[in-house]
Design a protein around this nucleic acid. Sequence first.
DNA 1: ACTTGATGTTAAGTATATATAACAATGGGT
DNA 2: ACCCATTGTTATATATACTTAACATCAAGT
Lengths: 75, 75
Amino acid sequence: MTGVLHNQIRLLRFMHGEMTQAELGERVGLTRQTIAAIEAGKYAPTLSTAFQIAAVFQVPLEQVFQWQPAAAQDN
Amino acid sequence: MTGVLHNQIRLLRFMHGEMTQAELGERVGLTRQTIAAIEAGKYAPTLSTAFQIAAVFQVPLEQVFQWQPAAAQDN
DNA sequence: ACTTGATGTTAAGTATATATAACAATGGGT
DNA sequence: ACCCATTGTTATATATACTTAACATCAAGT
């Protein structure tokens, strides 16, 4: 896990009619607890899950999740 | 898992000096068996893993993994 | 003050991504 | 014909994403 994962889920939810965690969960087939945990960065979602969340907000995946490498060592 | 996940790992490996599965594995901290399985689509990686693989090839994540929703119902 | 909806959080269980070890098959050198 | 590196594959084990259920807090109505 050489890096940090950020996300804009909370922001995107509010930008989409104050969508609730529960509703987002329903839309992607996850529980609201799981959404809460992902949103809080408690663990990193599966790639499929990430794509589904991005699809709900109709934005590219990188607009929902940002990856920051720990220490750049190449190039 | 409402959708299908494709990837271009094999292509990208050969485009990057015929990089071996083992070498890619080392670079992202996975075993060659895990790389082989992801490449073969046997299971979907973690978002962190996906970002790390994309970083090795220095391309955006969507250039490595493509998500195809099963049935579009929202518009 | 009371309800209700939304979120935070936690414990215990299930599903699945990943590791480890082993063996087979192939292709390229030599 | 023999190495040797690469990949395919499979069984068992471990880590972790995700579920379920439960309880707590807090803000908004009423």
